[in-house]
Simulated scan of single mutants.
Amino acid sequence: MLILCLGGLQPRQRGPVYVTASFVDKNNLFIENLSNDEVQVLENGQVRRIEFMARDEIPVVYGLIFERALFSELQADDRSRYGRVSGSTSAREIAYQLIDKYLGRQAMWVGAYDQGLEVVLDVSFDGSKVKETIQQLQGLRRPPQSLLHGALLSAVTKMNDRPEKRRVLLVFLDVLDVDSGGKIKSLKSLLSASNVEVFFVSLASALGSTRSALHPQMSQAGLKELATATAGDALFATYYREHSEDLTQKIYNQIRTFYTFGFQAEFTGEKPGSLLVKCTRAGSKVRHHPAVPALP
């Protein structure tokens, strides 16, 4: 079970909210046959009636974001010298597999970032057009320092304007930059208060990045911490070697096992009260946001 504790008492307001959650059983396997009567949602200790429950049958919007440094000529040269697959090749390969096998008919948009986020393709249901856009992404030979925190802020803002009840960000990057690494706390607050699931895919080598950034172990820990704030995940290509299809499958397995719940929440000011989500199935565990988004 998961406890969410938020703001104090102010004039009350009721309205619908939607939250996503994933459930694992006593064997740590995702629960794919959960029923409504196995879940309880309590707000400030009061049981709220679940008015909506769905898994992968509802519309989802996906944002595919790429760090431009992955496409730099300098990085490609360096990785080629050491016999490693370039970040651009790996990122494209994983994205194409996701689109071809799973996301092709969903709403998708594409962004690229260095010191800011550029939306290079607005929301489209055309998988071929999305792949074509990704293929055309380019970087500079010596790219400027990437700033993940600014890109995430812009991406979350864009997602919050979407009508879909589920919103998933897939962020392909080399490593976590030093500046964003120093802003983990504020980034976690941003992500935990959004109705967005974030999955990071790091293409960095275990030996380190070719650029000035956090040490790979620190980068991995930071990305894991950020992803956990959204019940998403951070995955690292170095552990999958040449088996990108296994990484793709793991990403999709997690995405498709999320449930979406809708209920009437009681808000005070801009923040909801404390929330408790429980699963009555023996040995089960719940993962989801540590916060619920306030009413628009």
Rank of each mutant, 00 (worst) to 15 (best):
Q13F: 10
Q13W: 08
G15Q: 04
P16L: 05
V17C: 05
V17G: 01
V19Y: 07
V19K: 02
A21M: 14
A21W: 03
A21V: 06
F23I: 12
F23L: 11
K26F: 14
N27H: 15
N28W: 11
N28M: 08
N28R: 15
L29A: 15
I31P: 01
I31F: 02
E32N: 15
E32H: 15
E32K: 15
E32I: 05
E32D: 15
S35V: 14
S35G: 14
S35E: 13
N36P: 12
N36T: 12
D37I: 09
D37S: 12
D37H: 03
D37G: 05
D37W: 06
E38F: 02
E38N: 06
V39C: 11
V39L: 13
Q40E: 13
V41M: 05
L42V: 06
L42P: 04
E43F: 07
E43T: 10
G45L: 07
Q46Y: 11
R48C: 07
I50A: 07
E51Y: 05
E51N: 13
F52P: 07
F52Q: 02
F52W: 08
M53R: 03
A54C: 10
A54S: 14
R55N: 07
D56A: 09
E57W: 11
E57N: 12
E57I: 13
I58F: 04
P59I: 08
Y62I: 01
Y62D: 06
G63P: 01
L64N: 01
I65R: 00
I65Q: 00
F66I: 04
F66P: 00
F66H: 00
F66G: 00
F66K: 00
E67Y: 04
E67C: 01
R68E: 14
R68D: 10
A69M: 06
F71K: 00
F71I: 08
